[in-house]
Every structure is written in structure tokens, then in C-alpha cells.
């Protein structure tokens, strides 16, 4: 069960958020704050890592949820919140990345780094992540 998807631009600002499972709906500002918080944690984690160069947070596992993050080489971050027993989300994240490169970046009415409002992107994501 996938609960939510968050997409952050290079600067760490939330550009997309949507829910695909039963989860509490928050205010728009709350989502923006969550996005920035994750961006900071991601950066701090990379610097804290004792193992030298680290890629930042990839996976957070707790008793109630699992968070898996994928950062592209350009700095865009995609992360999913799913149920704790959900299998590995690598392929899902890769599919979402490809949908982004198709239905967001090829849309002439989308301004890069800004909030994503593309019907086709929503539709394709719903088909991929919804039930």
C-alpha cells in the first residue's frame, strides 16, 4: 500500500504531493514544511555519515511506515511513503522518474522548478500507484 508521493526540486522546495492510500489530509503549507524538513534532513544525513561520501537518506523504516527516497544526478528528489512491509520501491521510483521526464518536462505549460499541475501526470501516477 502506497500512501503518498512527494517530489522536491533542486532547491528542496516541494513541487508535487499526492496521496494514494488512506492517510490524513494536511494543509498545503504543512506539506511544504514537510518537504523542506525532509530536504534538510537528507542533506544533514549525508554530512553526518561516518563512511565518507554518502548519498543522503535513501530509506527510513519505522513500525508504522516506510519512506524510500530517490535523488537524481540533477538534485531532484522523489520520495514515497508506504506501509512498513512494502517491498522494495526501486522500480516504482524509477517509473515515477520516467513519468516525470515525459508528462511534466515535455509539457510546454510547465515552468521548470515550479509546482507541478499536469493532468496527464496525475492520471498516469494514479494508474501506477493507486489501487
Amino acid at each position: 500500500m502506497i500512501y503518498s508521493l512527494y517530489i522536491l526540486n533542486k532547491a528542496g522546495t516541494l513541487i508535487y504531493q499526492n496521496d494514494y492510500g488512506p492517510t490524513e489530509k494536511l494543509s498545503h503549507n504543512a506539506y511544504i514544511r514537510l518537504g523542506s524538513t525532509f530536504h534538510s534532513l537528507h542533506a544533514i544525513a549525508s554530512n553526518l555519515s561516518p563512511a565518507g561520501s554518502s548519498s543522503g537518506i535513501e530509506l527510513i523504516e519505522t513500525e508504522t511506515f516506510k519512506l524510500q527516497c530517490f535523488q537524481t544526478h540533477t538534485g531532484t528528489k522523489f520520495y514515497i511513503i508506504a506501509d512498513p512491509n512494502h517491498p522494495n520501491l526501486d522500480e516504482t521510483l524509477q517509473s515515477i522518474y520516467e513519468l516525470y521526464t515525459d508528462y511534466v518536462l515535455k509539457n510546454p505549460f510547465y515552468e521548470i522548478e515550479m509546482s507541478i499541475r499536469c493532468d496527464l501526470f496525475d492520471y498516469k501516477l494514479q494508474r501506477l500507484l493507486g489501487d
Binding site: Q94, E98, Y100, L105, K106
Partner: peptide
Amino acid sequence: RLIEEFLAK
């Protein structure tokens, strides 16, 4: 924009 598709694929 194209760079993202290049990296993804």
C-alpha cells in the same frame, strides 16, 4: 529538461 530523461533512460 532533456537531461533528466537522458539520465533516467
